[in-house]
Amino acid sequence: MPGPQHELSRNGFVKAIVAMVGTAMGVIIGIPAIGYLISPATKIQKSDAWIPIGPLDKIPLDEPTLYSFTRTQTNGWEQTVNSYGVYVWRKNEDEVKVFSNICTHLSCMVKWNPDKKEYLCPCHAGIFDIEGNVVDGPPPRPLKLYSECDKNLKIDSGTLYIHFLEG
């Protein structure tokens, strides 16, 4: 015999229970699944270090010169060795500027052209002047600059250092 209208029917009760249990199961399975898939991105360790570039007096005057160094990071179960480059521009005896060689457009490596006195990015023809400013092409920002004394650049017993951030 069917009960009054406001009472939950057998069919409605089963539907509600299935919906509730289904939602609970979806959440219980879904959250670990998402956590599993995005896991490596949540575990990148930030690191920073003062990188010695070299003795300041050996760096050529008024000619941006490429210096490279490597950094090791743990990715999954492996140690990944990444190579980085910076252009050191010793403007004069007193002033030194260090530019990252990573293009601000899409992270290709720029190359200094001594004849044209400009940096060229080979990927999409982005051009930067000797001060790192964008001259032509798609880059949205000047090259990353290390020039602030003791903040991201320092000279310690004649050696030039930059403060390098990762992660």
Partner: peptide, 29 residues
């Protein structure tokens, strides 16, 4: 899901499974 992290290569297979078990969120599950 496992094939996202597992590497079928003798040099990496064991380490990739260890990574799933200890490094990846809910990898053990």
């Amino acid at each position: 899901m496992l094939s996202i992290y597992y590497v079928p290569d003798p040099a990496n297979a064991y380490d990739s499974v260890q990574y799933i078990m200890t490094g990846v969120t809910f990898g053990w599950l």
